[in-house]
Design a protein around this nucleic acid. Structure first.
Length: 589
RNA sequence: GCCCGCGUAGCUCAAUGGAUAGAGCGCCUGACUUCGAAUCAGUAGGUUGGGGGUUCGAGUCCCUCCGCGGGCACCA
C-alpha cells in the first residue's frame, strides 16, 4: 500500500550505492519490521556485502552489511513520512509516521468497503474445475474438500482480479454407473427414492458391489450392460437418464446449502465420443498403439520420449472392448474447455493428489500430439480426507461420513451453543446463526491447511468451535459490529489523523489490515487458501487484542472518532476475508 | 523396484532463504458492576526425523539415510 514510499527510498539507496561504488543487487526487497511493536519497513545489505566479498575484498560479511546499512541510514536522514531510521545488525529499518499512515489505511478501507482488498482487473480468464462428484454414489466428507477448496480458490481468484469460470465435472458414466444400473435392473426395477436421495443412491452402489463380490461370475452381466450402453440401447439410456438426474438433484441441494455455485457443467458421458475420436487420431498417427481385441489402446510414453528410466509410464486410453475410460474423456475435456471459452488463459483442475500421474500422462500425450492446450492446464493436487487410524473414506467399504449427516450434526451442535450463549435471540436468528457457525466450522479446517496435508476427520474436532476456527473470527466480527451499533446515527466516517499516541495493538491491527490486499494476491498466485485463513485469524486476534486494550465508546471525542473508524475498517476486513472463504459473517451470534 | 508427498512443542498445525521457530488444543493459575467471557492474561512445553553440503544466513535449497502415506497397463 506504500509503493510510492518504497520506490522513492529504493531509488535513493540505489543512487547512493552507485555514487559510492557499492555493487547493487537487482532489486531491494522490503519487508515489515519484526519485533518492533512499531510500524515500518526493512531491508538488509547482506547480499550486497556478500557480493563485495566475492569480488575479492577481504571482509566479514555481517560487519560490512552493518557498515553499509549505517552509511545508507546516515545518507537518508529522516525522509518525509517517516519518524526515524536505524541500522541494526545489517538491516536498515525505516519507521513510518504512524498517525499519517493509519489515517491513510483506514480511509482507504472505508472508501472501498466490501471491495477493500480487491485486485485490479487482470483481463485474464481462468477456469477452475472442482467437485467432480460421481453420480450413483454417495457424497461424503472426502468429496467435500475439493468442493470447498475449489469454491474458495474461485472466490480468491475472482477477488484478486481474474475472470473466473467455475466448472463441475460429474462422473455420470463409467464402471460404477454400469454396476449400479445392473443392480437396479436385476433387483430393484421400478423403485424410486423417497427422501435422502444421495444416501439411497450410495446404498444401492454398495449393494451392487456386494453382489459382485459374492458372485464374481456376474462380471459377464456387467460387461453386457456396458455393451448395451455403448450401442445406446434405449432402455439403458432412459434408465440412466432418469437415475442420473436423481443424483444430480441431490448434489444440487447440497451445493445450494453450502453456497457453492457453478457456471458450467461438463459430464463424463459427453466426453466419450469426442474422446474416442481423439484416440482414433492418435492411433492413426502412431502415437497410440491399438492392441485390440487382445489388449487395450495405449500410449507408451517413456518409449515415445526415449526415456531410459520409467517416468511417464504407459497410459491406457481405451478399453479392449472399445468402451471409454476416464483418460479417454479427459483427453476430450482438455480441448473442450478451451473451445467453449476462446479467451481462456488457464485451466485449473482441483483434484486429489492420487491423480497426479494421470494428469501428467494425459497432458504429456497431448503435447506429443502437438496440442497447445496442455501448456495452460494446471493440476492443483490436494491430499485426501481420512478417518482416524489412516482409514481412507471409500463408498464401497462403507467407511464414510455422509455429508448430510455432518451438516445436520454441525448445525445442531451450533444451535445448542447459541442457545447457551445467547438465549434471548429470536428463534429465526438463532437458526441463522447456527447455520453460519456450523457451516463455517466445517469449511475452515479444510481451508486452514496446506493443500499437501492430509485432513483427518473426527467428529469431536469437526464440531469443536473453539480456538483457531471460524467462530473465533466470526465472534470478533460480531464484537466490532456491536461497538458500531452503539454509535449508529453518529457520523464517524470522516477519518481524521489520530491525535493520540497509537496503542501498539492499534498499530498491529492497522498493519494487518494494510497487508490484506497483498495476501489476496499471494493466495491467488499460489493457489493457497491457507494464506487467507491465516490472515483472517491474525486479524481477528489483533482485533480482540485491540478490543481489550482500547476503549472506543468511552474514549475522548477525537480518539473515539478515530477508533470507530478503525473498528469499521477491521469489520470490513474480517468480513471480506470470511467471504473469500465462503464463510458467513453474522451480525450477532 | 521406480516416482511423488509428508516428518516442526504431548496433540493438530503455522512460519517469501533473513533478526528471537509461532498459534490453537490439552495441563495448571487468574480476569465478567467495565464497548458481548464463543473473549483475554499468565505458566510450562523445541538438538525443526538423523547425517552431510550450498550460503553472509537453512525448518525452508541440494545430497544421503530412516519413518509414514500415496501412485505406478484396460477404477475414477
Amino acid at each position: 500500500m506504500f509503493e510510492e514510499a518504497q520506490t522513492s527510498i529504493t531509488t535513493q539507496i540505489q543512487s547512493y550505492c552507485a555514487e559510492n561504488e557499492i555493487p547493487l543487487t537487482e532489486t531491494i526487497n522490503w519487508q515489515p519490521i519484526p519485533f518492533s511493536g512499531e510500524w515500518g519497513m526493512t531491508t538488509s545489505f547482506f547480499q550486497i556485502a556478500a557480493q563485495e566479498a566475492r569480488s575479492g575484498k577481504k571482509m566479514v560479511v555481517p560487519q560490512r552489511a552493518q557498515e553499509i546499512a549505517a552509511a545508507v541510514a546516515a545518507h537518508l536522514g529522516t525522509p518525509p513520512g517517516f519518524t526515524h531510521v536505524e541500522a541494526v545488525r545489517g538491516y536498515l529499518n525505516l519507521y513510518f509516521d504512524s498517525a499519517d499512515f493509519s489515517r491513510k489505511i483506514v480511509d482507504t478501507v472505508l472508501a472501498q468497503g466490501v471491495d477493500f482488498g480487491r485486485g485490479a482487473l487482470k483481463n485474464e480468464q481462468v477456469m477452475v474445475e472442482y467437485s467432480q462428484p460421481n453420480t450413483h454414489k454417495s457424497f461424503h466428507v472426502g468429496h467435500l474438500r475439493s468442493a470447498i477448496l475449489g469454491d474458495a480458490l474461485s472466490r480468491i481468484l475472482d477477488f484478486a482480479g481474474y475472470d473466473v469460470i467455475r466448472a463441475n465435472y460429474p462422473g455420470d458414466m463409467g464402471l460404477h454407473v454400469i454396476k449400479w444400473l445392473w443392480n437396479y435392473l436385476k433387483f430393484h426395477r421400478g423403485e424410486k427414492p423417497e427422501k435422502d436421495i444421495t444416501k439411497w443412491m450410495g446404498d444401492m452402489y454398495v449393494e451392487a458391489n456386494r453382489h459382485l463380490e459374492e458372485n464374481p461370475e456376474l462380471e459377464k452381466e456387467i460387461r453386457e450392460v456396458y455393451a448395451r450402453w455403448d450401442r445406446r440401447d434405449p432402455e439403458i439410456v432412459a434408465l440412466w437418464e432418469e437415475t442420473r438426474q436423481w443424483s444430480l438433484d441431490g448434489f444440487n441441494q447440497m451445493y445450494a446449502e453450502l453456497d457453492i455455485p457453478f457456471d458450467i457443467y461438463y459430464f463424463n458421458s459427453q466426453m466419450e465420443e469426442p474422446g474416442k475420436a481423439i484416440v482414433k487420431a492418435l492411433v492413426e498417427r502412431e502415437i497410440a498403439l491399438d492392441e485390440r481385441p487382445e489388449g487395450p489402446v495405449l500410449v507408451k510414453l517413456d518409449e515415445l520420449l526415449g526415456n531410459k528410466q520409467e517416468k511417464y509410464r504407459v497410459l491406457v486410453i481405451l478399453r479392449s472392448d472399445g468402451t471409454a475410460l476416464y483418460s479417454t474423456e479427459d483427453l476430450a475435456l482438455t480441448l473442450k474447455k478451451f473451445a467453449d471459452y476462446p479467451a481462456l488463459k488457464r485451466s485449473i483442475y482441483v483434484v486429489d493428489v492420487r491423480q497426479s500421474l494421470h494428469f501428467t500422462q494425459v497432458w504429456k500425450t497431448m503435447e506429443i500430439a502437438g496440442y497447445e492446450e496442455p501448456k495452460h492446464c494446471h493440476h492443483i493436487p490436494y491430499e485426501i480426507v481420512n478417518l482416524p487410524g489412516n482409514v481412507v473414506m471409500a463408498s464401497r467399504e462403507g467407511t464414510i461420513v455422509l455429508l448430510e449427516d455432518l451438516l445436520r450434526e454441525a448445525r445442531q451442535r451450533a444451535l445448542e451453543v447459541v442457545e447457551e450463549k445467547n438465549p434471548e435471540l429470536s428463534v429465526d436468528t438463532k437458526k441463522n446463526v447456527a447455520n453460519a457457525v456450523g457451516l463455517g466450522a466445517l469449511r475452515f479446517p479444510m481451508l486452514a491447511r496446506d493443500n499437501a496435508k492430509t485432513v483427518t476427520f473426527d467428529w469431536e474436532s469437526a464440531l469443536d468451535f473453539n480456538g483457531q476456527a471460524a467462530p473465533y473470527i466470526q465472534y470478533a466480527h460480531v464484537r466490532a459490529n456491536s461497538i458500531l451499533r452503539r454509535a449508529t446515527g453518529e457520523k464517524f466516517s470522516d477519518v481524521a489523523t489520530p491525535s493520540h499516541e497509537l496503542d501498539p495493538s492499534e498499530v498491529q491491527l492497522i498493519d494487518l489490515i494494510s497487508r490484506l490486499p497483498a495476501e489476496v494476491q499471494r493466495a491467488a498466485d499460489e493457489y493457497k487458501t491457507l494464506q487467507i485463513t491465516n490472515h483472517a485469524y491474525d486479524l481477528a486476534k489483533a482485533f480482540n487484542d485491540f478490543y481489550r486494550n482500547c476503549p472506543v465508546i468511552q474514549a475522548e471525542p477525537d480518539v473515539r472518532n478515530f477508533r470507530l473508524c478503525l473498528v469499521d475498517a477491521a469489520r470490513h476486513s474480517m468480513a471480506n476475508m470470511l467471504k473469500l472463504l465462503g464463510i458467513q459473517a453474522p451480525e450477532v451470534m
